[in-house]
Write a protein that binds this DNA or RNA. Structure first.
Lengths: 124, 124
DNA sequence: GCTTGACCTGGAGTTGCTCCAGCTTGTTAC
DNA sequence: GTAACAAGCTGGAGCAACTCCAGGTCAAGC
């Protein structure tokens, strides 16, 4: 798969994929004879996961660390699996915070929309 | 109220409040004899609202526009109320998107945590 | 053989903060 | 009275995470 299709499938932009590669957040990306990036199913799956994580606010430094850990066995580096788990748990807490923020803002918006809605309705 | 208390109460940092003022996102901020910023209840309420909006990803340009519109009567500038409402509706859609992203990521995390949890559990 | 299109690289620009140096101004401690 | 401290001020640099752009390569189609 070429970079355009990888971008479409993953939801990341072409520029972001290149940026993530440079930043060490992707496993080594293969190239064809022309030097173009080629993405297999596993690589695209990884991009999709990164997209989910960044859309929900995981910092790049965590994504990079996670990328490194995923390709480390616990036998080779004891504690790797535990650290991976810790990163995911930290992000789960971030998600919970995000959800609370979204809920609070929803209440605020609903209130304001009903107030402004009445004003607009009254004038038009 | 001084800037430290305004920051604590609103959830914005002192630097962010100053930055927002410079960026035209606050109604004119009063100063005391020393030149220090003073925030009354209304100003702090506005800061709290901005905090909710930025935490949920409203772009600065919309916050600024909203700030301008809030101090505009519909009589003075026809359509002001409608535009204010439109900004809020746009943000409500952003919230819906955010919620979907959070949900999708939650599913992903739950899955990964259960998989990695088993691995870690097996090795320790 | 020339144009088109997909890709490449390196680097500049953008958004939204965040941090810092250097200064002023009251207040408290000696 | 003055030294030290705390709280605030400004202007500007730095940073995260992209995003855009100029200039170049290379295979394919006309």
């Amino acid at each position: 798969m070429n970079i355009t299709d990888a971008a479409t499938t993953s939801g990341l932009s072409i520029d972001t994929i290149r940026f993530y590669e440079k930043a060490g957040m992707l496993p080594p990306v293969r190239r064809d004879a022309r030097g173009w990036r080629r993405f297999d199913a596993g690589a695209v799956e990884w991009l999709r996961n990164l997209e989910r994580l960044r859309a929900t606010g995981m910092p790049m430094v965590d994504m990079r660390r996670f990328a490194v850990l995923v390709h480390t066995t616990d036998a080779a580096a004891p504690g790797a699996a535990a650290e991976r788990l810790a990163i995911l748990h930290t992000h789960a807490e971030r998600l919970a915070t995000r959800r609370r923020e979204v809920d609070a803002c929803q209440v605020f918006l609903d209130h304001k929309i009903s107030v402004y809605g009445k004003i607009t309705g009254g004038l038009t």
